[in-house]
């Protein structure tokens, strides 16, 4: 289902397609008309995306067709092999993990996984991990340290799952442990927010030396809907909450929470996932090249400094 603000763009695209088909079928030359409409389309798309509200960005971050962790693993990395299980209780399909190569070097990849269909989404629990998912992530961090491979994490979750069994098995505890484990990595750690960066469930795999974010992704302490439900006592105020939370890629760059915004192709990553993932691959390569010369001690100190400086306080 297209997003509301995409509607005029899609309509214009459909008209151009119709004209093309008509011209082809009837053998008439409509190239001037088509050219004009294409210019108009280009302008409309540019204007629409230059003026997106924060709430519209949130909708883009959730749009079906956006690249997921498994899509990135397929296109950006080579020789991926998925590894399963937390060695304690279960395998959590909401987090995928494994080994791969990135431009020649071995890396460890961990990421939240949403489904593309309702059925798959139910299987993946809409990308909301249980404690087992974070235990699997920590296992992979151990492996990255043991072999000296960079850890690359891909964030796309509305949040860790708020359920009875998750609480019984220590959801808060594993998130805390995962934050700690990632902070202690002696190898380069890169985190990328692909779509949704929902709270502690996202941060658990977000303690990178560098944190990157896709242009239309969001990252915050709470989803706009939950924030609205608590502060406005009305989930319908999500649009207002999204504005207040300053949760877009550019907001976060300004606040110093992320280091780099990865540009998405015109129309958003869901309309051109390959283009978005290629831009991501370039950004990853640049960041990794900067981190690789650092020693384990330098990487630890760099990560500590990065997070130690977060926040806005006044000292009197």
């Amino acid at each position: 289902m297209p997003l509301e603000f995409e509607q005029p763009i899609l309509e214009l695209e459909a008209r151009i397609r119709e004209l093309r088909d008509y011209a082809e079928a009837g053998g008439v030359d409509l190239s001037d008309e088509i050219g004009l409409l294409e210019q108009k389309l280009e302008r409309l798309q540019r204007e629409t995306f230059a003026n997106l509200t924060r709430w519209q960005r949130v909708q883009l971050a959730r749009a079906p067709g956006r690249p997921t962790t498994l899509d990135v693993v397929e296109r950006v990395f080579d020789d991926f092999i998925e590894l399963h299980g937390d060695r304690a209780f279960a395998d959590d399909p909401a987090i995928v993990a494994g080994l791969a190569r990135f431009r020649g070097r071995s890396v460890v990849v961990v990421g939240h996984q949403k489904g593309k269909t309702t059925k798959e989404n139910i299987h993946r629990n809409f990308g909301m991990p249980h404690p087992e998912g974070y235990r699997k992530a920590m296992r992979m961090m151990d492996m990255a340290d043991r072999f000296g491979f960079p850890l690359i994490s891909l964030i796309d979750t509305p949040g860790a799952y708020p359920g009875v069994s998750a609480e019984e098995r220590g959801q808060a505890w594993v998130i805390a442990q995962s934050i700690q484990r990632m902070g202690r990595l002696r190898v380069p750690a890169l985190a990328i927010i692909l779509g949704e960066g929902g709270s502690g469930g996202a941060l658990a795999i977000g303690v990178g030396n560098r944190v990157l974010i896709m242009e239309n992704a969001w990252y915050s302490v709470i989803s706009p809907e939950s924030c609205a439900a608590i502060l406005w006592r009305d989930a319908a105020q999500a649009e207002q909450a999204a504005e207040a939370l300053r949760l877009t890629a550019h907001d976060l760059k300004e606040l110093g929470v992320v280091d780099r915004v990865v540009p998405e192709p015109g129309g958003g990553a869901h309309r051109n996932p390959e283009g978005a993932m290629d831009a991501l691959a370039e950004a990853l390569a640049k960041e990794l090249a900067e981190l690789e010369p650092l020693s384990p001690e330098e990487l630890l100190a760099d990560r500590y400094r990065r997070f130690r400086e977060m926040g806005a306080v006044e000292i009197v």
Binding site: A176, I179, G183, S199, G200, L203, G206, V207, Y219, S220, V221, I222, C227, I230, L231, A244, L245, R246, L247, D251, L252, L255, V257, F307, R308, M310, G311, A312
Partner: peptide, 15 residues
């Protein structure tokens, strides 16, 4: 975490 400081509050968890 305090909602009114949004992502900066979230970062305090790591800090």
């Amino acid at each position: 975490a305090r909602m009114q400081e949004a992502a900066l509050s979230l970062m305090q968890m790591a800090k």
